[in-house]
Simulated assay, not measured.
Amino acid sequence: MTTLDTSSLTEMQNAILQRASTLKNAAGLSTSATKDVGGVSSVVDGSKSGGILSFNDALNEAMSSVNDSYIQSTEAQDAYQKGETTDIASVMLSRQKASVAFQATLQMRNRLMDAYKTIMNMSV
């Protein structure tokens, strides 16, 4: 097992924040920024009057988004089955979007669990 010191953890955190910033700029999300609070960087949501978006809030928002995409895909599938729409491409696209969102959430959970296990196995 490799030991991690604080400088390498800080370097990894800075690299992750830099990648997130690059991706955010590429996506054109200029309403959010990062803010350093007590040595821990947090996401600041510009649309919520400058408040800090906690990890729990971000996770709940992501879960809500995944759930909404699943509900939309189910509604599109039901509409197609009832004959209300004939656009099978949009139905399949919404199903794939919901599937990708769920798979991304599952992978995020797996990574968080691996990180938790790694931290719990560290000697202090």
Results as ranks from 00 to 15, higher is better:
residue 112 L to T: 04
residue 98 A to E: 01
residue 38 G to Y: 05
residue 40 V to E: 05
residue 27 A to D: 08
residue 112 L to A: 07
residue 6 T to K: 09
residue 41 S to F: 09
residue 76 A to Y: 09
residue 105 T to C: 06
residue 50 G to D: 10
residue 32 S to A: 05
residue 96 Q to K: 13
residue 69 S to L: 15
residue 37 V to G: 01
residue 109 R to W: 03
residue 76 A to H: 07
residue 94 S to H: 01
residue 116 Y to E: 11
residue 5 D to G: 13
residue 104 A to P: 00
residue 66 V to K: 02
residue 53 L to H: 09
residue 49 S to C: 02
residue 1 M to V: 07
residue 109 R to V: 13
residue 12 M to S: 10
residue 85 T to D: 02
residue 49 S to W: 04
residue 96 Q to E: 14
residue 116 Y to M: 09
residue 29 L to T: 03
residue 93 L to P: 00
residue 117 K to C: 03
residue 57 D to M: 05
residue 59 L to I: 07
residue 116 Y to Q: 14
residue 1 M to G: 13
residue 80 Y to D: 04
residue 42 S to G: 00
residue 112 L to Q: 04
residue 123 S to A: 06
residue 39 G to K: 00
residue 120 M to I: 12
residue 100 V to Q: 09
residue 65 S to T: 13
residue 82 K to E: 14
residue 43 V to N: 04
residue 33 A to V: 10
residue 97 K to W: 01
residue 34 T to F: 15
residue 33 A to W: 03
residue 44 V to Q: 14
residue 84 E to R: 07
residue 104 A to E: 10
residue 70 Y to S: 10
residue 2 T to N: 07
residue 27 A to E: 07
residue 118 T to V: 09
residue 119 I to G: 00
residue 105 T to F: 12
residue 83 G to K: 05
residue 25 N to H: 09
residue 106 L to D: 11
residue 36 D to G: 00
residue 26 A to I: 09
residue 68 D to K: 12
residue 55 F to A: 09
residue 97 K to G: 01
residue 47 S to E: 10
residue 5 D to M: 01
residue 17 L to W: 14
residue 69 S to C: 05
residue 50 G to Q: 04
residue 86 T to M: 03
residue 116 Y to F: 11
residue 23 L to E: 14
residue 54 S to Q: 02
residue 108 M to R: 07
residue 48 K to H: 06
residue 28 G to D: 05
residue 32 S to P: 01
residue 116 Y to I: 08
residue 28 G to I: 04
residue 71 I to K: 12
residue 31 T to E: 05
residue 95 R to E: 10
residue 10 T to V: 06
residue 63 M to P: 00
residue 69 S to R: 12
residue 18 Q to G: 03
residue 14 N to D: 12
residue 47 S to T: 13
residue 96 Q to P: 00
residue 36 D to Q: 11
residue 53 L to Y: 10
residue 11 E to T: 13
residue 16 I to V: 15
residue 115 A to R: 07
residue 113 M to R: 14
residue 86 T to G: 11
residue 28 G to K: 02
residue 109 R to F: 08
residue 99 S to F: 08
residue 108 M to C: 10
